[in-house]
């Protein structure tokens, strides 16, 4: 005899799924569909008239050398942000995991920066590194190093990477710490009794067991670097000097809200959408294989 409870109603599962589906549709599919639709037009800002241009917006974008170059800028920026945010967070998490006295105080303080809005984070870093009045710029000058990110593209990149990564470190820290605490102590103790050093235990036991967390954070951090960092860039460099910190998402913002060119902005969103989709597929197909659950 069948012991499971069976619901005969064919509609019930759909009904139960409906709220989630509705949210997904309204907040994800609809805007994405709108962006795809709008990318085929050149409208005027006030929406008084619009012209169908087919793939014209995409042609315009890919014909622009500066747009093509911003792919490379985005790649450099994203890799730097992801690697530095994750490695610092892991380092801090490993240290915090070993602290016995006052550990909760440390942890709370380390999580704080996550509550700071990107634009505020940008302004904070800008104050410290202002070439004229910033305290760190002044200290560097005392050491004989000239800091001027308004003219030096490399310094500007370093500054926006630092500000973006700093904000994300807390988030990564939280997950790494949880991941570390989920690793059975007995395994590590057994290795310690066998005489494995801290570094060896970390390399052969902790890091592999942490890989699901690391993988999750890799995906989240890349998406963060791609989409959520424009506030930092807007406040610190506005994409400059020249185009050295103009990443793709900043250009979406600047064409749409500074230039009021909604057609080009929509086309760029579609390109970004595709790019992140491809990146996520690649991550799941090729990197996830190496993850041990």
């Amino acid at each position: 005899m069948e012991k499971r409870v069976v619901f005969d109603n064919r509609w019930l599962p759909y009904l139960l799924l409906a709220p989630q589906l509705l949210v997904t549709f309204v907040f994800f599919f609809w805007p994405a569909g709108q962006a795809i639709y709008q990318s085929a037009f050149i409208p005027d800002p006030f929406g008084l008239k619009t012209q169908f241009v087919g793939l014209g917006n995409f042609e315009y974008l890919f014909g622009n050398r500066y747009y093509r170059e911003s792919f490379l800028t985005t790649a450099v920026f994203s890799v730097l942000v992801t690697v530095s945010a994750m490695s610092f967070a892991l380092w801090l998490a490993v240290l915090a995991d070993r602290v016995i006295k006052g550990s909760s105080a440390y942890r709370t303080l380390l999580i704080w920066p996550y509550a700071v809005a990107p634009a505020i984070a940008g302004v904070l870093w800008l104050f410290m590194f202002n070439p004229f009045t910033g305290i760190i710029a002044w200290m560097l000058a005392q050491l004989g190093y000239t800091w001027n990110h308004t003219l030096d593209g490399g310094q500007a990149m370093a500054l926006v990477v630092a500000a973006s990564a700093w904000k994300q470190i807390s988030y990564n820290f939280l997950f790494f710490l949880a991941g570390l605490q989920a690793i059975p102590k007995s395994v590590i103790e057994a290795a310690a009794i066998d005489g494995a050093s801290f570094w060896r235990r970390f390399r052969t036991i902790v890091f592999p067991l942490l890989s699901p967390t690391t993988f999750f954070l890799l995906v989240v951090n890349i998406i963060y670097a791609f989409f959520d960092t424009f506030g930092v860039i807007h406040t610190i460099t506005k994409g400059g000097p020249e185009q050295s910190t103009t990443i793709l998402v900043y250009k979406v913002f600047s064409d749409g809200f500074v230039g009021q060119d909604l057609g080009s902005s929509a086309a760029q969103s579609v390109i970004l959408l595709g790019l992140v989709g491809i990146l996520t597929v690649v991550q799941f197909r090729y990197i996830e294989r190496r993850v041990h659950y």
């Binding site: 506005k238 400059g240 000097p241 185009q243 600047s254 064409d255 500074v258 060119d261």
Partner: peptide, 10 residues
């Protein structure tokens, strides 16, 4: 506004 941005960059 955007052209000024370009001029700034150059």
């Amino acid at each position: 506004d955007q052209i000024r941005g370009i001029i700034d960059e150059e």
